[in-house]
Design a protein around this nucleic acid. Structure first.
Lengths: 337, 337
DNA sequence: GTCGTTCATGTGATCGATCACATACGAGCC
DNA sequence: GGCTCGTATGTGATCGATCACATGAACGAC
C-alpha cells in the first residue's frame, strides 16, 4: 500500500490576464484595457472582467507590467542610515504620497561619508530602474556621487536644493535660521553663537548662512561658531566651547544639539534661559518637554516629503514652499545684564 | 529647406543580455550564467562576458529577472507612519541587511489603527510580490489584518512575536521590563507605577506583563498603571495621574513618555530622582542628555532589524536573541524616606 | 573502441503583461 | 450606395531575463 504522489494541485500559480480573459469570455487585451482603464470599453464588458478578476483573486504581476511597459512605477529614496526623526518622518510621508499616486517606494541607505556606500546605494536604485529619486539627507558627497554616476534618473532633494531643484525649498533653511537668529538678537543678545551641523550637509551650511546673514544685517559679527555632527553629544561639546568664548545665546543647528547645549549649560551651573538662551531647529515632538521647553524652528518635514514626490512626478503646480515657523518656548530670554 | 527628422538615435534603449552576448561572442544564456554565477563556466569566458558588460554599461533588468524567475527578490516593510526613532533605525538596519543579501526593500506605511489603511499597505506589498514582510510596529490589528488577508507571504515581526515567530524575541521585551522594574524595587521603592504604551501594541503589553511579573515576584501589587500613546505629551499626563496616586517611582514604556514624566515632575515641583525615580525604555540617543540623564533599558533596535531579515530569509542559524541592558543614569535613586 | 559522465555552451520556449496593428460594426455624409 | 470615421474588441509580436533541454568535447572505465 504505497501512497502515490498526488499529481500536484491543479493550478499552483496565480491567475494571469489570460485566465481572467477566459473566465470573462473576452480577450487578454480587453483585460489589459480594464487594468489600465482604457476609455473605449463598454461598461458591461468592464464589469464582466472585474467580476472575473474578483472571482480568481487576480493580482496584476508588477514585474510583467514593468517589463512590457518599461516603466517601473518605482521611486527610490536615498537616505542615511540613521534613525533620526527628521529623515524618518519625511520618508514616511513621501511613501504615502507616492503610493497614493500608484508608485512604490524602495529605500537605500548610504553612509554619506563613504563614497563607496553612496555609489552602491545609487546603483542599487538604478538597477531597480527607479523612475525618480528622493534624496532625503542631502550631503554634498551624495549629490556629487549622483552627478558623477550620471545615470539619467531625475532626483529631488529634500530640505536643500540640488541641481534640478530651483530655489524654493532652499530658502526654507535660510529663512528658518534667520528667524531663530533674529529672535535672539531682538531679545538683546550680542554675543550669539551657532552650533553648526557637519559642513558637508547642505542643510547645515544653509542654516549657517542664514545665521551669518542675519547677524550681519544687525552689524554683529558671526565668529562664534562651533561644529557638531547633529548628535546631542556633539552639541554638548560645542556648547562647552562656545561658553568659554562668553556667548549669552546659542542657535543650534538642530534640536538634538540644542539638547546637548542645554545639558552643557546645566553642567556649567548656568541657568537657561537666565544665563544662556538656546534655540534649536526642527521642533522634534519632544522639544516641548525638554528642560526648559525648547524654543525652536518648526519645519514641516512630512510636507517636505510629500512635496518632493509631487515635484518628482512632475506636478509642477507645486504650491509655494511652506515657510518655517519660530516656536517660542522657555529656553530664550533677554540676557541677564 | 526642411529639417528632416532624424531617424532617431541608434539605440536609445539599454543593453540586454543579447547585446552583451553579441559583443562577448557567446550566447545569451552564457551571459545569464555569468549573471547568476553558474559553476560550470570557463574563467576566460566569464571574463569576456564581464568585459562586454562593462563596455556596454550593462544593467540587468530587474523586472525581466523577476518575471522569468518568478522571484521578486524584494522584501516588504510594514511600518507605521511615524518618524519615531525606534522603528526608523530598525528599518534602516533591515534595509542594509537585505541589500547585502541581494534583496530590495519596499516600505508601506499603515496607520495601524485604521484597518483599511493596513489592508491597503499589505495589499500593496502583496501586489509587488514581496517574498517576505518585516512588520516593524507590531500592533495587534496589523497582525490580525495580515492573517485575515492570508496572502501566503511569510512575515516576521520586530520586537514582538507574531504567529510564525517562536518565542525568542518576545522575551526581550519582558526581560527588559523586568530589569527596569527590579532596579526600582532594589532601590527600595514599593509604590512603583507604570506608564504603558497603547494596549494594541504587542510591545506595550509585553512590557506591561514584565512589569507585573516582576512586582508580583516581590509581593508587590501592580495596580498603579496609566496608559499613554508613546508620546511625551501622553507621558506627562500619565505621570501626573500616577503622582496623584502617590508613586515614588515610575517605569515608562518608552523614553519619550519618560521624558514627559520628567517634565511632569518638574511641573509638580518634585525632584528627580529625590522625590521621584523614573526609568525609560529604548535608550534613544538623547536619553543621556535629558535632565537628569535618564536611566533606561537599552535595546539594540538595529540588530533587531538585521535579525528579522535573517530570520525571514531562512538563515535559521539565528543567534540567540540580544538581551536588553539596563543603563543606569541619574534619574533613579532610593526613595527619600 | 564504445559507453557513460561531467563540463561548457547553445537553442527555443516561457514568464505575464503591453504594444502595434488588424478587424468588425454602426453612424454620418455626399 | 460608397466613403470615411470612431468605437469596441481581437491577434500576434515584444519586453529581457530564466528555464528546460539539447549538443559537443574531453576523459576515464571496461
Amino acid at each position: 500500500m504505497t501512497a502515490h504522489s498526488d499529481p500536484e494541485d491543479p493550478r499552483p500559480r496565480a491567475a494571469s490576464v489570460f485566465d481572467v480573459a477566459k473566465v470573462a469570455g473576452v480577450s487578454h487585451q480587453t483585460v489589459s484595457r480594464v487594468l489600465n482603464d482604457h476609455p473605449s470599453l463598454r461598461d458591461a464588458t468592464r464589469q464582466k472582467v472585474l467580476t472575473a478578476m474578483r472571482e480568481l483573486n487576480y493580482r496584476p504581476n508588477a514585474a510583467a507590467r514593468a517589463l512590457s511597459s518599461s516603466r517601473s512605477r518605482m521611486i527610490g529614496i536615498l537616505s542615511t542610515s540613521s534613525g533620526e526623526y527628521g529623515p524618518a518622518s519625511s520618508v514616511a510621508a513621501a511613501e504615502t504620497a507616492a503610493r497614493g499616486r500608484g508608485y512604490s517606494v524602495t529605500i537605500a541607505n548610504a553612509d554619506g561619508l563613504d563614497p563607496l556606500s553612496v555609489n552602491e546605494a545609487v546603483n542599487h536604485l538604478a538597477n531597480l530602474a527607479a523612475e525618480g529619486l528622493v534624496v532625503v539627507a542631502p550631503q554634498t558627497r551624495v549629490l556629487a556621487a549622483l552627478s558623477a554616476l550620471s545615470i539619467g534618473i531625475p532626483f529631488v532633494t529634500l530640505q536643500a536644493s540640488g541641481p534640478e531643484t530651483p530655489g524654493a525649498r532652499e530658502l526654507d533653511q535660510v529663512v528658518g535660521a534667520r528667524l531663530a537668529t533674529a529672535h535672539l538678537v531682538a531679545l538683546g543678545h550680542t554675543r550669539v553663537g551657532h552650533i553648526a551641523g557637519p559642513p558637508e550637509w547642505l542643510d547645515a551650511s544653509q542654516r549657517l548662512a542664514g545665521f551669518r546673514d542675519e547677524l550681519a544685517q544687525h552689524g554683529l559679527g558671526a565668529d562664534l561658531i562651533a561644529s557638531g555632527d547633529w548628535s546631542a553629544a556633539s552639541g554638548y561639546r560645542a556648547a562647552t566651547a562656545l561658553l568659554d568664548q562668553g556667548v549669552t545665546a546659542i542657535f543650534a543647528g538642530n534640536d538634538q544639539m540644542a539638547l546637548g547645549a542645554l545639558s552643557a549649560a546645566t553642567a556649567a551651573r548656568l541657568e537657561v534661559p537666565g544665563d544662556l538662551s538656546i534655540v534649536g531647529f526642527d521642533d522634534v515632538p519632544e522639544a516641548a518637554y525638554y528642560h526648559p521647553p525648547l524654543t525652536t524652528v518648526r519645519q514641516d518635514l512630512a510636507e517636505a516629503g510629500r512635496r518632493a514626490v509631487a515635484l518628482l512626478l512632475g506636478e509642477s503646480d507645486a504650491a509655494p514652499s511652506v515657510q518655517p515657523e519660530l516656536i517660542v518656548r522657555a529656553s530664550t530670554a533677554p540676557p541677564r545684564r
